[in-house]
């Protein structure tokens, strides 16, 4: 599998999954799946021309810099990599991005965010994980907070979410927490996906021209 242009090979032709099946399984329409293929093709051929998205290609698309590692972008990449083989294929790309569609159910967004924040995959979000994430955010931003302020933020948030007080946030507690704090899911909706066929119309236009 190489990096042929989409005028020669669309998502159907290169065996990246049937757009109709992907559309029926996700929040995307068939046209939107085909438009996403344009974006996918560009990303997956930007450095290593094997038609798969490698982490450095993901970083390049996110930050215009293939060497720029970021704690949270790493987490997103790892969760997109559903097969856990170190690369993202087109099906994984579409199925994972679908969670970020403004039309995707809140329950999907809630569950995905839980997995993002369950850093060690224990089935719980632990206080140490929350602290680690706050410190990572501070590290990447210009925000400078003292240790005691960080502790206060972490403690306060954790105590709100950990309603049974067992020292860890389980999926049910997380659901209740995000209901009361919708800002916690702010990063889970991507308005761009609403207009994806406008942003990447070329495949659809070529596809219709070939029909």
């Amino acid at each position: 599998m190489g990096c042929a242009s989409s005028s020669q090979f669309g998502p159907r032709a290169v065996g990246h999954g049937d757009p109709a099946v992907l559309a029926s399984d996700t929040s995307f329409t068939v046209n939107e799946v085909e438009a996403l293929y344009e974006l996918y093709r560009r990303m997956s051929c930007s450095i290593i021309k094997d038609g798969l998205i490698h982490k450095e290609e993901f970083q390049l698309a996110m930050f215009r810099n293939s060497k720029k590692a970021n704690f949270f972008a790493d987490r997103v990449f790892d969760l997109f990599d559903l097969k856990r083989n170190g690369v993202i294929d087109f099906e994984e790309f579409v199925r994972s991005l679908s969670v970020f569609h403004p039309r995707a159910p809140t329950s999907e967004k809630t569950a995905f965010a839980f997995k993002l924040y369950d850093l060690r995959g224990t089935g719980y979000i632990e206080k140490e994980e929350l602290r680690e994430m706050v410190l990572a955010l501070l590290d990447e931003s210009d925000l400078c907070l003292s240790d005691s302020v960080v502790e206060a933020i972490v403690d306060n948030t954790f105590n709100q979410a950990d309603s049974n007080g067992d020292g860890k946030i389980d999926p049910e507690e997380w659901k209740e927490f995000v209901k009361k704090n919708p800002a916690a899911l702010r990063n889970m909706s991507l308005p761009y996906l609403q207009d994806i066929t406008l942003a990447f119309p070329s495949f659809i236009m070529r596809s219709e021209a070939n029909d």
Binding site: L39, F72, V76, E140, L190, Y192
Partner: peptide
């Protein structure tokens, strides 16, 4: 006030979650 800050809302501001960057040409 730190007590009123939500750690998850803070985290959600990370550039690492800004998937909109993927759509910038």
């Amino acid at each position: 006030k730190p007590e009123s800050m939500n750690a998850f809302a803070l985290i959600s501001r990370s550039q690492g979650f800004n998937l909109g960057n993927l759509f910038e040409k």
